[in-house]
């Protein structure tokens, strides 16, 4: 008998403690009544062909599998949006659909499956990020009706190039978006993480820096597994800033 148990006094009764353990283990804990909404906004433009898209697909497959049974799976929803091949697309599992559809791309982390992405086309980054913001707001309206709360939504943007318009011309249409994102972040309605992978150039890097000054990072290689680990950590603690020392140098 430990000193602590002895200190419980004359009323201490081992059988009672065992009963209390049963009572504690039997307490009903309801499923989480809040959600963490995470948009994964991924570049699938033609410059991602080859090793990049292959590594991205491998990383997504393994990550999706691990997320299905993660401790946070019950409270987390993912939405996958791609820009490049096929234009801007929403995904649910292996199915892509028209971004103008009212259908939400958010699925529970328990049910999240990764499609096999193809690389093609241009880089309509701005349109994809705006779609990400829209699907978050739409999902929040649904959650309000379901009387479910949410923590600050997260968007992870991964790209290898400069934003273009639908015809492939370099575009500066992302500039007003940067201010809109700042405003959303100040009101705690969004946190954007922006990741650059090769062969992103200086202009592309500067674009990401402007879009996410506190949370952007440029990788020198296609380390998508590392990026997804960082995403996972941001979900576990949505309010934690991603400081420079939280990031593994590539």
């Amino acid at each position: 008998m430990s000193a602590h148990q002895r200190s419980a006094g004359a009323g201490y009764n081992p059988s009672s403690q065992e009963q209390y353990v049963d009572v504690i283990d039997g307490i009903s804990i309801p499923p989480p009544n809040y959600r963490v909404l995470v948009v994964l906004c991924v570049d699938t433009s033609s410059s991602m062909r080859g090793e990049a898209i292959s590594r991205l697909n491998d990383a997504l497959q393994g990550w999706a599998h691990s997320m299905n049974s993660h401790s946070m799976a019950a409270s987390t929803e993912f939405a996958l949006i791609t820009f490049g091949a096929g234009g801007v697309l929403k995904w649910r599992g292996t199915e892509s659909f028209d971004p103008r559809s009212d259908r939400t791309p958010f699925v529970s982390a328990r049910e999240f499956t990764a499609p096999v992405l193809a690389a093609d086309g241009v880089t309509p980054l701005t349109k994809a990020v705006r779609l990400g913001i829209d699907v978050i707001e739409a999902r929040k309206r649904q959650l309000t009706q379901e009387r479910v709360t949410w923590r600050r939504p997260l968007m992870w943007l991964v790209t290898d190039g400069r934003p273009t318009d639908d015809r492939g011309h370099f575009s500066s249409d992302w500039q007003p978006l940067a201010g809109e994102i700042r405003a959303l972040e100040q009101r705690r309605k969004l946190t954007l993480f922006a990741i650059g992978v090769p062969p992103i150039d200086d202009v592309g890097q500067e674009t990401l820096r402007q879009l996410a000054p506190a949370n952007y990072r440029i990788y020198g290689q296609f380390d998508f597994n590392e990026i997804l680990v960082l995403l996972e950590r941001s979900v576990e603690d949505p309010n934690r800033s991603i400081r420079i020392d939280d990031w593994k140098e590539s």
Partner: peptide
Amino acid sequence: RLLQRDDVIAA
């Protein structure tokens, strides 16, 4: 013990 339960941690 209550705070360490898996479903509490998950929630």
